[in-house]
Amino acid sequence: MSVNVSMNVNGRAVCGEVEDRTLLVEFLRENLRLTGTHVGCDTSQCGACVVHVDGRSVKACTMLAVQAEGAEVTTIEGLAQDGKLHPMQEAFRENHGLQCGFCTPGMVMSALDLVERNPDPSSAEVREWLEGNLCRCTGYHNIVKSILAGASAMRGGS
């Protein structure tokens, strides 16, 4: 069955026709062409697809598009403002928190949810929080460093 869904994605009202079984990530990638949200597994574990729905980080591969009806969705494409990277994005760049870049959008979106709850996390808290995000390239060392730096920058209001 097909239905119309409408939601607000990165501050823009969007709608589209989807099958009931369409995942939110499929709607974002295929209907909206927001291909920054990635799919790295089919068991809801890798976290490459993490986006924010109504302010909470969720796996867009584990939510139906119809479940996000009326929701506020933020994807990686919605972070940089006026061409300026978000402090968390900038921290990843400065600290070499990414290599192939595939897990990166999910890492950044997940990190922002952590910092929202815990503005000054410890290194151990960051590592624990990243339970739902896999990376094969970085060994996580620089991801953790990036998130700590990003959190610090966000506390500083920069």
Partner: peptide
């Protein structure tokens, strides 16, 4: 290369 990866435009 990081700018495109970080902004979801890779």
């Amino acid at each position: 290369e990081d700018h495109r990866f970080l902004t979801g435009t890779g």
